[in-house]
C-alpha cells in the first residue's frame, strides 16, 4: 500500500490553458462568501435585532472581542471531540472486527447495536454525570458513544461482504479463518473504515457539544449556553461558527486520510 503514489496515470492530462480561472476550485470559497453576503444584506434590510439574528459582521466582531474565551473553549471542545473520536476509532475497529468475524456474533449483536444507536445520546449525559461528574469526561464519553457506531457497522460490513469466490480460492489452499481475515477481510474493510471516519468525526462534535451544553463548565457548548442566558446572541453565533470551522477542518483531515490510505478503492470497483 505504501507504493501507491508511485503509480503514474496512464492517460496524459489534457493541456490546460494558461490564465484560466478554475471555477470549481474557487467555488467553495465563492459560495461561502456569497452566503455571508446574502445573510448580511437580508438582516440589514429586514431590520432584525442582533438578539434574534446577528449579521455576519457583528458575529466576526464578537469573535474578535471575545477571542480569548472563544479560543480557549474551542481548544477544549476540539480536545474532548478528538479524544472521544480516537477512543471510538479504536473500540469501533475492535468491535467491528469482532462482529464481522462470525455470522453468529453478527446476528446476535446487531439488534443490540441498533437499539443502542437509537437511544438519543443526550439522554445518556445525566447518567455519565452521575458516574463521572461534570466536565471533560462525560463530553469525551458522549463523543465516543455517538461516533463509534458508524465505524463498527462499516468495518463489520467490509468483513461480511468478502466475495465467496475469493474465500473459496483461499480455503481450497488450506487457509484458516485467520488467514482469510488478515489477507482479505481486514484490507478489504479499510475503505469502509476510512469512509466511516468522516461521518464519525462530525458526530463526535455533536456528542461533545451536547454534553458540554448540559453538563460542563468548559467548551464551546458551555460557552454558548451561558452566552445565551446573557442574551449575547452574537457570541452564540460566534461559537457556532467556530464549531463549523473545526468540523470542516477535521472532516477534511479524514477525507485526506481516506484518500491516502485507501487510494486503490477510489480507482477500482470493489466488486470487480
Amino acid at each position: 500500500m505504501s507504493n501507491i503514489e508511485t503509480v503514474t496515470p496512464q492517460v496524459a492530462l489534457p493541456q490546460r490553458e494558461p490564465f484560466r480561472i478554475n471555477w470549481i476550485r474557487l467555488a467553495p470559497l465563492l459560495y461561502t462568501i456569497g452566503l455571508f453576503v446574502i445573510w448580511e444584506i437580508g438582516v440589514r434590510i429586514s431590520g432584525l435585532p442582533h438578539t434574534i439574528l446577528p449579521t455576519p459582521s457583528r458575529i466576526f466582531e464578537a469573535i474578535v472581542q471575545y477571542w480569548s474565551p472563544i479560543w480557549k473553549n474551542s481548544l477544549q471542545t476540539l480536545y474532548t471531540t478528538v479524544l472521544g473520536f480516537i477512543i471510538a476509532v479504536v473500540a469501533g475497529l475492535g468491535i467491528g472486527l469482532f462482529i464481522g468475524w462470525s455470522k453468529t456474533i453478527y446476528a446476535g449483536l446487531y439488534p443490540i447495536m441498533i437499539g443502542f444507536n437509537a437511544i438519543p445520546k443526550v439522554a445518556l449525559v445525566p447518567i455519565l454525570v452521575i458516574w463521572f461528574g461534570i466536565g471533560t469526561v462525560p463530553a469525551v464519553l458522549t463523543a465516543f458513544l455517538i461516533s463509534f457506531f458508524p465505524i463498527v457497522v462499516n468495518v463489520a460490513t467490509g468483513l461480511a461482504t468478502i466475495e465467496p469466490e475469493t474465500e473459496d480460492v483461499l480455503r481450497a489452499l488450506g487457509a484458516k479463518k485467520l488467514d482469510i481475515m488478515l489477507k482479505v477481510g481486514i484490507p478489504r474493510s479499510m475503505p469502509y473504515f476510512f469512509g466511516s471516519l468522516k461521518v464519525a468525526i462530525t458526530l463526535a462534535f455533536v456528542g461533545s457539544v451536547v454534553s458540554e451544553t448540559v453538563a460542563s463548565n468548559n467548551g464551546l457548548g458551555n460557552m454558548m449556553a451561558s452566552a445565551q442566558s446573557n442574551f449575547n446572541v452574537p457570541l452564540v453565533f460566534a461559537g457556532l461558527l467556530m464549531l463549523a470551522v473545526e468540523g470542516i477542518a477535521m472532516y477534511a483531515l479524514m477525507a485526506w486520510l481516506e484518500k491516502r490510505m485507501t487510494g486503490w478503492a477510489h480507482r477500482s470497483t470493489m466488486s470487480n
Binding site: 500500500m1 466475495e163 469466490e165 475469493t166 473459496d168 480460492v169 480455503r171 481450497a172 489452499l173 488450506g174 489477507k183 482479505v184 484490507p187 478489504r188 479499510m190 485507501t262 486503490w264 478503492a265 477500482s268 470493489m270 470487480n272
Partner: peptide
C-alpha cells in the same frame, strides 16, 4: 478437508485491488 494440491480460477478474477 480442503486439498491444498489444487489451484482454482473462476469467471470472476477476484484479484485483490490493494
Amino acid at each position: 478437508k480442503p486439498v491444498s494440491i489444487v489451484g482454482m480460477a473462476f469467471q470472476n478474477p477476484t484479484m485483490l485491488p490493494w
